[in-house]
Design a binder for these strands. Sequence first.
DNA 1: GCCGTTTTCGGCCCGACTGTTTTCAGTCG
Length: 579
Amino acid sequence: MDNARYAELLEETAALMQVRGDNPFKIRAMQKAARVVSGLAESIDARLEAGTIRDLDGIGKSLASDLAEMRERGSTGLLDDLRASLPDGITDLLEVQGLGPKKVKKVYEELGIGDLDALEAAANDGRIASLAGFGEKSQARILTEIERLRRMAGRTPFHRAWPIAHRILDRLRELDGVERAEIAGSLRRNRETVGDLDFVVASTEPGPIMEAFSTMDDVTEVIGSGETKTSVWLEGDFSADLRVVPPEVFGATLHHFTGSKDHNVAMRSRALKRGLRISEWGVFRVVEDGDDELVASGTEEAVYEAAGLPWIPPELREDRGEIEAAESGGLPALIELSQIRGDLHMHTTWSDGRHSVAEMAEAARGRGLSFIAITDHSRALTVANGLDRDRLLAQIDEIDAWNAENDGFRVLKGLEVDILDEGVIDMDTDVLERLDWVVGSVHSRMRQDADTMTKRLVAAVESGLISAIGHPTGRLIGTRDPYSFDLETVLDACEAHGVALEINASPERLDLNDKMIRQVLARPSLWLTINTDAHSTSMLEQMKFGVGMARRGGATADRVLNTLDLDAFLEARRAPSAA
DNA sequence: GCCGTTTTCGGCCCGACTGTTTTCAGTCG
C-alpha cells in the first residue's frame, strides 16, 4: 500500500471523528499522523516491516498498530466503527465553507442530513434556518457555498494562482500608505497547489487599503471585513485574504500568514515551554498578573531569534522536522536561483518551440546563465514536429556553428528523446553519442500499469543513452495524474548508470515534486537537475518555480548538476554512450 | 492519541471575524 493511501485513511478517520465529536486532541494526533505519512520519503510498508514505524514523530503505540492493521486489511477497527455509524457523504459536508464539525453534527443529528444533496434540499426549504444556532444568513451562505463547491475542483494549481497573486501584489504596492506588501500563505511556501491567496501589508492606514482591495476588478464578493482583515472571493472561485498591520509588527504577521498552520502550532507550543507566546502580533514574554511584554515583531528573523531559532525558509515550514533541524543547526542551505548556471531542457523552432537556437541562447545568456542544452523533441513526437536523424544532424551543425562564433557562453547539443514502449530510445545510437546531453522522457502510453512503466523507465536508463529522465512522473498539476511506476526501482537504475533526475520547472508540471526530491536526495550519489523545458525565450524565467520546488524538497546546490560550471558539469554528467 | 529542558500524567496555539446572540460559540487559518 502506498503512503498516500495510508494518509487518506488517516484523514478519513480524523474527519469522521470530528463529526462524531471525539476528543479534539485525538483528532489532531490523527491529522498530524496523516501529514507525517504523506510527507514521508520512504514507504510506510518498509517502516512497518523494519519495525521503525514508531521512530516517526507523531506515531505512537496506537497509530503504529492502526497502520499495521491498515496494511493488513485496508482499514482499522476505529475506522470501521466510524463508517458504520455515520453516512458515507458526511465528510463532504465539512468541505462547505462555514460548516465545521459541530454544525455538521447538528444538521446530521437533528435533520438526518448526511450528504451535500440533502443539505442543499434542507437549505432550500428552510429547515436549516430553523435550527438553533443557524439563521437565514447561514442558510443562504450554505447554498452559495454548495454551488461554489460543485464548480471548483479543490485547491488551485500553483501556475494559476501565481500570476493572479502577483497582479494583486503589484496593485497593493502602488497604493498610497503601503509601506510593504508581500504574498504569504502556501504560495510563498511554493506549494504546488494553493487553497487561497494571502497578502500582508504594512501601513498605518488600513481602511483605504482594504477598501481598494475589496473593490478590485477580480473581486466577485466580499466574504468578510474587519479592522485589520478583509476576505474576498475572486473570479475563478478562489479566495484571498488581506491583512493590514502597522509596520512594526509586519514580520510577525507575515510569519503568521505564511504558515503553515502546523508550523505555527509547533512554533507556538515550543515557545510556550520557554515562557513565550507567539501570535500574529509578535512574540511576547508571558507575564503573570500583568501585560505580556513584547519581545519581537518587526521582522521574521527577529521572531525566530526570539524563539531561539535561526530564520527558517518558507518552503520548509510544514512541521516536518524543520524546527528540530533549525534548533540543532541542521537546516539545509537551500539552493537559490542565482546558483543555477545552466538550463538543460528547452525547445526551439526545430520542433515545437517558438524561438531559434540563437534566440534561446541569447535570452539565456541575458538571464545570466553560462550554458544551455537545446533538447528538441525526437521523431516519435510527430505532433511536436520531432527531429529525425537527419534533422538532428543538421541541428548539431547549426549549434556547432553558433558556438564557433560566440565566446563566453556555450550551447550544448542535446535532445529530449522519447522513451518508447519497453524503454526503446527514439533515436539512433551513433547520433546520440555525438550529443552532450540527452533527456529521456515518456510522452506516450502513459497509462501502462506500474510494473510495465517501471521496466520501461529502467530499460531506458540501462541503455546508457540518456543523461537524465525528464519530467519523471508525467503529471500535469490538476489535469493529469502522474503515471504509476516504482520510483525507488528507477532510482536504483539511475544510481547504477549515473543518470540524473529532472525537476521540470514548468509550473504546470513541477515534476519531480518535493517528496520525490527527498527520495532522490536520500541517495547521495544521485544528481538532480532543474530545467525550464522552455518553449520560448520568456519561459526561461520559469526556472524560479523549479528552484522553489527543489527548496521544498530540501535540495542544496551541491546536489543539482546545473549549478556546476561548464567543465565540472561535463565531467559529472552521464554522457550518452551505449551501455 | 502523543509526548517530555517543570517526563509517564496532564497538558495540547492563537486571534479575527461572523452570526445568532444578549455574552458567545463556531469557524477559519
